[in-house]
Simulated scan of single mutants.
Amino acid sequence: MCLILFAYQVHPVYKLIVAANRDEFYQRPTLPAQYWEDQPEILAGRDLEKMGTWMGVTKTGRFAALTNYRNPKEITDGKRSRGELVANALAFEGHVSDYMQTLVENKHQYPGYNILSGDINELFYYSNVGGELRKLEPGIYGVSNHFLDTDWPKVNKGKEGLAEIVLGDEERLGSGLVEKLLVLLQNAEPAPDEFLPHTGVSLEMERMLSPLFIRSEQYGTRSSTVMFMSDDEIQYVERVFSRNGVKDGEFRIKM
């Protein structure tokens, strides 16, 4: 998952609204969002290479999502798969803060990451690179492949778009929010060179990775996910894509 935009306790009905893109190599085998056969309380996509996930929710309202921290010089040999962090967060039976504390204690076991986990009442953020475990206040946030709310073009554009959509929902019924958020997530306009971050990859790669929605032959946005969570309902919509951003299916689930 390379971009997570979310509005936490901002909308009067939907206390958690998430709009996220997962970017990955097209050749990596993946299952779309569904209830897991081995853990039927979990609704999520699944990475079939490591059997973890990048984002999901449970029937009881536990949410978790993750992005990688981009550092091409990082040595990852011998480290565990980051996808298990989200799966474990969703399966954890205790309080979410206790789970997040275990991540702090074991931060060196995984390559660099950002993780969100919680529900409509408490939401936590942690990066094993930044090192600070935060309980989030109400607000509109964005995280890509650096830290939470880093001043990257795609994060700023995403947060501005999310705020306009969520705060402009005057009827307070969520009408049309899903489609508006999916349109936002499919914005493929690259950032101007002068605003590109410098993360240790080539300029050409920075350009390719700069839009909210990434298209290329080998790597790109594999799925766009929108989730709404209120006191008594969860809506989960996932749109999946194949090479060069061609739509390949859509899944809509309510619980």
Rank of each mutant, 00 (worst) to 15 (best):
N121D: 14
I75L: 14
G94V: 01
K107Y: 12
D151K: 12
G200A: 13
L185K: 04
K50G: 08
K135C: 08
E238D: 05
S202N: 15
Y8F: 08
L123Y: 07
H108V: 15
E238C: 02
N21H: 10
G158D: 10
D23L: 04
A19M: 02
Y69E: 04
M208I: 05
G56H: 10
L133A: 05
P72Y: 01
V18E: 00
N121W: 13
A91W: 11
L173V: 04
A89T: 07
Y125M: 00
N114V: 10
A188L: 15
T58A: 01
N128F: 11
G56W: 05
Y219H: 15
Q27G: 14
D77H: 12
L85P: 07
G168S: 09
Q218D: 12
P153E: 11
E105F: 14
F25M: 09
K159D: 12
M51A: 15
V86F: 04
A7L: 01
E189R: 07
S223Y: 05
G52M: 02
L5H: 08
F213I: 13
L203M: 14
P153C: 08
P138W: 12
L203K: 04
E250H: 04
E206V: 08
Y69R: 13
P153D: 04
R243K: 15
D98S: 10
M208C: 04
F63E: 10
G249L: 00
R215K: 10
E105W: 14
Y35C: 00
Q39N: 14
G139T: 08
N114T: 09
R243A: 13
Y99H: 06
K154S: 04
G61V: 14
L209A: 01
D98Y: 13
V18T: 11
T60C: 03
P197M: 15
V129C: 01
A191T: 06
L181Y: 03
